[in-house]
Amino acid sequence: MDGGIVSYGVYVPRYRIKIEEIAGVWNENPDSIKGGLRVKQKSVPDIDEDTATISVEAARNALKRVDVDGEQVGAIYVGSESHPYAVKPTATIVAEAIDATPYLTAADYEFACKAGTAGIQTCLGLVRSGMARYGLSIGSDVSQGAPSDQLEYTAGAGGGAYLIGTENIIAKINKTVSYTTDTPDFWRREGQRYPSHGGRFTGEPGYFKHVTGATEKLLEKTDKTPSDYDYAVFHQPNGKFPVRAAERLGFEEKQYSPALVVEDIGNTYSGSTLIGLAKVLDQAKPGDRILTTSYGSGAGADSFDITVTENIKEVQDRGPKVSEFLDEGTYLSYGEYAKHKGKVK
């Protein structure tokens, strides 16, 4: 049975902080930081925003695009590494907010930045088997970075929600594969306020090994080459990694550049790949082929081969587009940012 994306929605907080503002506090060279990370600013959640509120907004934006009621959604999975509760699911909050309760299955996922795509794979299995009519997978984060740490320059906030089903598909998921190992490139123990990262493990052993591993396996299974795709979407921890991975795999700038959002909103972690894919869907045409590969530290990558259908034209203008969130911006000072992020008590 065919299965795929029925609708999608994103949400990014309107607040921003520029790299120069953070660098000035720590006496760093902002041009060096921006050049090294290829990020000029990042999104910041409002004082009353968290992973749950962002997930709800993204889910509502996804449902705006289609004539699907919340009660038709039989599964909800929220992927994040910044769930507001250590013991209490975010998925049930979303379910109540979109009137999906009580007859559904729901759970929270965590796999660093790829938990949202893991949820898509789960939903795909449920709808193809007939266990659920629609499944909703959300990747959402209000990511953390310790003061003066490199993560503070990129750790943003935002989320993407994807409605998965077998009817009225706007983008068919032809194939998905995953590549997973126990690579400790990034972690945060229970009770720790900020995550740690393993330096040299972050790049080659972490991101690049898994992103290229999953993508190459997908190309092998689909018997495709990079030139067969109109778009390529990769997880965006910074502005350099997705570009380097894409070019290493043989993709051209015209294929990967339409998905890049990290320069304007930073790394939204579980939302990163999903927001990038949404930006592509906002402009895609029927018949376009999209390769999408997420990445989560710890470590793993999920890769998808996607074909856009004629139904895409019916949903593109029925909800807010990614560009609308990128154009927004209320800029904060470092002190205001620290208050918003709870760095100052």
Rank of each mutant, 00 (worst) to 15 (best):
G36V: 06
I290H: 11
L277H: 03
Y153R: 13
Y179V: 04
T105L: 15
G145I: 04
G74D: 06
E324N: 08
D69Q: 13
T293R: 01
F201V: 10
L291H: 09
H340Q: 08
G130T: 03
I312D: 00
G298C: 02
D48I: 00
A246S: 14
N174M: 04
G198M: 10
Q144H: 11
K345V: 13
P286T: 13
Y179R: 11
P45W: 05
D282C: 01
R60K: 15
G139R: 05
E324T: 07
I170C: 14
K18I: 02
D50K: 00
A284D: 00
E204Y: 12
Y231T: 08
M131H: 13
Q192D: 15
G35S: 13
K221A: 08
G276Y: 12
L37W: 06
I19R: 00
S303T: 00
E57A: 12
T180G: 07
A62R: 04
S80E: 04
D108K: 12
G116D: 15
G329C: 07
D228H: 05
A112E: 11
E57C: 02
R65K: 14
D141P: 00
T330S: 14
F201R: 10
G165M: 14
Y109S: 09
T273F: 07
G319V: 01
S272A: 10
V12H: 01
E216L: 12
T183K: 11
D182P: 05
I17H: 07
V68M: 11
